[in-house]
Simulated assay, not measured.
Amino acid sequence: MAEIRYPLGPSVSRGLKHRCPACGQGKLFRKYLKVTPRCEACDHDLARYPADDGPAYLTILLVGHLIVGPLFFFPIVWESPAVYSVPILLGSLGVITLLALPRIKGGWIGLMYALGVTDREARLHTADAAD
Rank of each mutant, 00 (worst) to 15 (best):
A127W: 13
L61S: 05
R38T: 10
I4L: 13
F74L: 13
L58H: 01
F74Q: 01
H65L: 14
A56V: 14
P75M: 12
G24A: 07
V35H: 12
W78E: 02
F73T: 07
A114V: 08
G110H: 12
L8N: 04
C23Y: 01
D131Q: 12
A122Q: 15
T97V: 02
R103C: 14
P7E: 00
D119M: 01
A129Y: 09
D131I: 07
F74Y: 02
E121K: 14
T126W: 12
I60F: 08
Y57D: 06
K27G: 13
R5L: 15
A114M: 08
R120E: 15
A51M: 06
W78V: 10
A127H: 06
V12I: 10
H65E: 12
V35S: 10
G64W: 00
S85R: 12
A47N: 08
L111M: 06
V68F: 04
P55D: 04
T118K: 15
G15K: 12
L71M: 15
F29Q: 09
S11D: 04
Y113P: 05
V117T: 12
C23P: 11
G64S: 08
R48K: 14
H18M: 14
A47E: 11
L71K: 03
P10T: 00
Y57N: 11
K31T: 12
E3I: 10
A130W: 07
L71S: 06
R19F: 04
A100I: 05
P81I: 03
Q25V: 15
G107S: 07
A100D: 07
L16H: 01
R38D: 11
G91A: 00
L46I: 08
E121N: 09
D128E: 15
G69D: 05
L90A: 09
T59V: 02
G15H: 08
L61K: 04
A56R: 10
I109L: 14
V83Q: 11
A22C: 12
P10G: 11
L8T: 04
A47M: 08
I88H: 01
I60A: 15
L99V: 04
Y57G: 14
F74I: 07
A56W: 02
L62S: 04
P37T: 07
Y49N: 10
Y113M: 05
Y32A: 11
P81L: 10
V12N: 01
I96T: 00
L89P: 02
